[in-house]
Design a protein around this nucleic acid. Structure first.
Lengths: 218, 218
DNA sequence: TAAATTTCGTTGCCCTGGCAACATAACTCC
DNA sequence: GGAGTTATGTTGCCAGGGCAACGAAATTTA
């Protein structure tokens, strides 16, 4: 089980002794499932009662809007959760589909088993629920952060909000932009060329400096 | 303790015998705090290690952007959580302030106590953590839903996304809009007059019908 | 019921930013 | 190194929608 290495570093099993992880997995009735590239891991409008963790491969959550256009919501990698947000709200159908971008292995844990505790391993269970809680709130924060950009009225404010956040995260007025221009434009829900135009303007006005993906706030 | 009535119907204590709630409250080392109208309940950039539940009064979460303009993020009522999202991510400072809109009473429960379980009441603790998880994911879904509107490129698509959601929630092509025009425009991050204009257009084109806050999708 | 206040629709003006088309780098493969 | 791709910047065009100002309903207060 080479994927133990992924799990013991995952946010779900963080703080749990690697040697205990195996035992817990069976205690939780977890199971794994494999998907081929492009296969659908989770369908829009499906109901979910288990949490998934990608132990190998990668995927993307996508969404089709009314007109049928596909939008990528999130990129999921090794260690990422699939459907945590949904697992809790059982009466809620999935707003997104998740599609494997590559051959992918997912570990599933029925959500009920995470909460139900067997007598013997109370402490580890406590860590587990707490970790799950952490992971969920992180996911929520990701949503919050994007909202924070999207609610700005001008493109410039969107950009600034994002850059300021990066600057804080990296603790410096100089920082690296983890997205390419196209990725950033999608994240901010803007046109790529308009983004480039605005970035150039902002640099001309001395607000920021950048070369390639290395930015600096002034 | 009249607020027991609020609590036993709250999402946190849902499914727990009202008679048990009192005992649990002391077991959890909960405590209450009162705030006067306009008083700050939670400050931006504060760190949080407890969850709050409004047991009387109401509040709003607000945010000051770079230019100092204040935006209302959420309205909080009796039974609403304060800072759940934050309580989990301890290393994360609050992105919003929460201000009492009225004289308000908040019940606090240290987050650690929610996870740490005393031997005697394991079952209730299990319900509690599950409820908390539910509540958190609901909050996340609220964020998701708003995102869903905001990422649309045109105002019309934003409106439609929102209306379709309402229609689904109310299980009918006819439904009531819970916001006034101004509220809707803020939610969709649009101009009120532009919103009115677009709604009128959509009605002229036969896409929707509405009188006052009663809408119908065609 | 009259006056005042709030809510909603309408419209003209004009700017932000989406779209398309093209130029330049930068990078990848033969 | 040349050809093909991909990432980024630039620019003209123009429409979507923000802004302001106004009028009409609707609701509240006196």
């Amino acid at each position: 089980m080479h994927y133990i290495n992924v799990l013991k570093n995952s946010i779900l099993f963080y703080g749990i002794e690697p040697k205990d992880v195996n035992e817990m997995l069976s205690c939780l009735s977890s199971y794994i499932k494999e998907y081929k590239k492009d296969e659908i891991i989770l369908s829009e409008s499906e109901y979910v009662d288990k949490i998934g963790i990608i132990i190998s491969g990668c995927a993307r959550s996508i969404k089709n809007d009314v007109s049928g256009k596909t939008t990528i919501i999130t990129l999921l990698n090794e260690g990422s959760y699939v459907g945590v947000l949904l697992a809790a709200s059982k009466n809620r159908e999935s707003p997104v589909s998740v599609q494997a971008s590559d051959n992918t292995i997912v570990l599933y844990i029925p959500i009920d088993n995470v909460f139900r505790r067997c007598e013997k391993n109370c402490v580890r269970h406590e860590i587990l629920t707490r970790n799950l809680f952490d992971g969920l709130s992180q996911k929520a924060m990701v949503l919050h952060d994007r909202n924070d950009c999207l609610i700005k009225s001008t493109l410039r404010d969107k950009i600034m909000t994002y850059l300021i956040r990066l600057s804080k995260e990296q603790n410096s007025a100089e920082f690296v932009l983890p997205l390419d221009r196209n990725g950033l434009s999608e994240y901010l829900n803007a046109d790529r060329s308009a983004l480039s135009r605005e970035l150039s303007k902002m640099q001309k006005e001395g607000l920021i400096n950048f070369t390639k993906n290395h930015f600096r706030l002034n």
